[in-house]
């Protein structure tokens, strides 16, 4: 795999180079803090991991260390928001969404202007194992009536999404990775709510990906192209609202859609895409991602095991197209 995968906007993935999503996010909070006095940041004893601690160093008066008490952190953020602050609260996705019912009532039902950031998502976190992995968080958060759900693909998008959330009024959830990821956007990219993004055009298969797997999906598309399969790659950073129109449009062209995410195949991007296609333009869909508990291992091992790396995505895409061909 020597050739870089080219996106339609000219951005090329450099396979040897990965960038920190949470680092970019943490720096974005610091920048936003300089211009937005209403921005306050909360963390539950993970600020050096979530990178919210960067804000804490710069603005100690607007940083609240809540201790290992996520439920109270969520409620405190709601109280701050009700008095005009814009709280960004942080923990691992697993732990914060684990306090789901507090989010449901205090954040969602109050229509509270709180931004929830869950880091360390998926099996990509590696060695710490399943108890630390956010693997069902989107399924839960997406079920709430008025919470927007974001999942950036790289550091550029994480920064842009943080800027977007600063100005957004209402409850939000964003999940970001522990591990460094491929960069698929140039510096001028701006996140847009409810908009998917065609990173590469193709005619045989649509890959809808979100989060860390987006880079791998682009590289897989490049490899599949060498095998005579033309793949369209869509980055879906806005999981809710979801750009169903774009997905349906692509499905009309390719007739087959495969989703790729480092999250359970139940309830996350795969489910959301199926819901949209079922109502708009039903075509065969293959959901790829986590089908069982994750476990300890290197990020590379975990992505190989769960078929989220270039080999895995390529393999899944080929078998999917074969199944469709055999049925036809």
């Amino acid at each position: 795999m020597s050739s870089a995968a080219q996106t339609t906007n000219g951005m090329a993935i450099v396979p040897e180079q990965k960038f920190s999503m949470r680092g970019a996010y943490g720096k974005a909070l610091v920048e936003l803090g300089k211009t937005h006095p209403e921005l306050v940041v909360l963390d539950a004893d993970l600020s050096s991991s979530t990178k919210s601690g960067l804000f804490g160093k710069e603005f100690p008066d607007r940083f609240f260390q809540m201790g290992i008490a996520e439920s109270n952190m969520i409620g405190t953020a709601v109280g701050l928001a009700s008095s005009g602050k814009k709280p960004f609260l942080h923990s691992f996705a697993c732990f914060v969404v684990g306090r789901f019912e507090v989010i449901k009532l205090a954040v969602a039902y109050n229509e509270s202007n709180v931004a929830i950031t869950g880091t360390h998502v998926g099996v990509g976190i590696g060695e710490d194992g399943y108890s630390q992995m956010g693997t069902e968080d989107l399924g839960m958060m997406r079920a709430l009536p008025n919470v927007i759900c974001l999942q950036p693909a790289d550091d550029v998008e994480a920064r842009s999404a943080a800027e977007f959330l600063m100005d957004y009024e209402g409850p939000s959830y964003m999940r970001i990775t522990r591990q460094n990821v491929y960069r698929v956007h140039d510096e001028n990219y701006r996140f847009e709510l409810g908009r998917g993004e065609v990173l590469r055009s193709g005619t045989d298969l649509t890959l809808v990906a979100s989060g860390a797997p987006v880079g791998y999906s682009l590289l897989a598309a490049e490899r599949l192209s060498g095998l005579g399969i033309s793949v369209e790659v869509i980055n879906m950073a806005s999981i809710r609202p979801l750009d169903g129109e774009l997905i349906a449009e692509s499905a009309r062209k390719t007739g087959a859609v495969m989703t790729v995410e480092d999250h359970s195949v139940r309830g996350g991007l795969g489910s959301a895409v199926c819901e949209e296609l079922a109502e708009r333009y039903p075509v065969p869909v293959m959901r790829t991602g986590l089908r069982e508990f994750g476990g300890s291992g290197t990020e590379a091992d975990n992505y190989r095991i769960h078929k989220l790396d270039v080999d895995g995505i390529t393999d899944n895409a080929r078998s999917f197209l074969e199944v469709i061909r055999n049925k036809a």
């Binding site: 609240f64 709601v78 109280g79 701050l80 009700s82 602050k85 039902y109």
Partner: peptide
């Protein structure tokens, strides 16, 4: 009403946030 409540145990956390905001401002 200052907060949606009814799932018991949540109100005091929201009150803490309001009191913190009062301090900040």
């Amino acid at each position: 009403v200052e907060a949606s409540t009814g799932s018991l145990g949540q109100g005091l956390s929201i009150a803490v946030g309001m009191a913190l905001a009062g301090r900040l401002d």
